Amino acid sequence: AEEIWQQSVIGDYLARFKNDRVKALKAMEMTWNNMEKKEKLMWIKKAAED
C-alpha cells in the first residue's frame, strides 16, 4: 500500500524538492508515518484490488 501511495505522490514530492530524490523520499516516509489509519486504509484497499 505504501508503494502505491508513493508512486502516486512521488512527482509532487520531487517537484517540491527540486528533484532531490533523497529529501523527497525522506519527506514521503515521514508523511506516510504521520498519516491517519483511515487515510492509509484507502491505499491498502487500492493495493488489494491490484
Rank of each mutant, 00 (worst) to 15 (best):
A1T: 03
A1L: 02
A1K: 01
A1C: 06
A1Y: 04
E2N: 09
E2F: 15
E2I: 12
E2V: 09
E2G: 04
E2R: 05
E3M: 14
E3L: 11
E3W: 14
E3F: 14
I4R: 08
I4M: 15
W5Y: 04
W5T: 00
W5K: 00
W5I: 00
Q6T: 10
Q6E: 03
Q6L: 07
Q6S: 09
Q6M: 14
Q6C: 11
Q7C: 12
Q7L: 12
Q7I: 09
Q7E: 10
Q7V: 11
Q7F: 12
Q7G: 05
S8A: 11
S8I: 09
S8F: 14
S8N: 06
V9I: 05
V9L: 04
I10A: 05
I10S: 05
I10N: 03
G11F: 10
G11S: 11
G11Y: 12
G11L: 11
D12K: 07
D12Q: 06
D12E: 13
Y13R: 01
Y13N: 02
L14E: 03
L14R: 01
A15P: 05
A15G: 10
A15I: 13
A15N: 05
A15V: 13
A15R: 13
R16F: 11
R16Y: 12
R16H: 05
F17G: 01
F17T: 04
F17R: 00
F17S: 04
F17P: 00
F17E: 06
K18M: 14
K18R: 12
N19D: 14
N19H: 10
D20F: 02
D20I: 03
D20R: 02
R21G: 09
R21A: 08
R21T: 07
V22N: 07
V22K: 10
V22R: 06
V22G: 10
K23Y: 05
K23N: 05
K23W: 03
K23P: 03
K23F: 04
K23G: 13
K23I: 06
K23D: 06
A24N: 01
A24Y: 01
A24F: 02
L25R: 06
L25A: 08
K26W: 07
K26M: 10
A27K: 04
A27G: 04
A27L: 06
A27H: 11
A27S: 06
M28Y: 00
M28A: 03
E29Y: 08
E29C: 06
E29R: 10
E29M: 12
E29A: 11
E29H: 14
E29W: 09
M30K: 10
M30P: 01
T31S: 09
T31K: 10
T31V: 14
T31M: 13
W32P: 00
W32D: 00
W32A: 00
W32K: 00
W32F: 02
W32G: 00
N33F: 07
N33A: 12
N33C: 12
N33T: 10
N34P: 00
N34C: 12
N34D: 07
N34W: 04
N34S: 09
N34L: 10
M35R: 00
M35S: 01
M35Q: 01
M35T: 01
E36A: 08
E36M: 03
E36W: 03
E36N: 09
K37E: 15
K38R: 10
K38N: 14
K38W: 13
K38E: 15
K38Q: 13
E39I: 06
E39D: 10
E39N: 04
K40W: 03
K40C: 03
L41D: 15
L41V: 07
L41N: 06
L41T: 05
M42Y: 14
M42W: 15
I44W: 04
I44C: 05
I44L: 13
K45F: 07
K45A: 15
K45I: 10
K45H: 11
K45Y: 12
K46P: 04
K46H: 07
K46W: 06
K46G: 04
K46A: 12
A47E: 07
A47F: 12
A47D: 04
A47V: 08
A48P: 03
E49Y: 07
E49C: 06
E49K: 09
E49I: 10
E49D: 12
E49N: 09
E49G: 12
D50Y: 12
D50F: 15
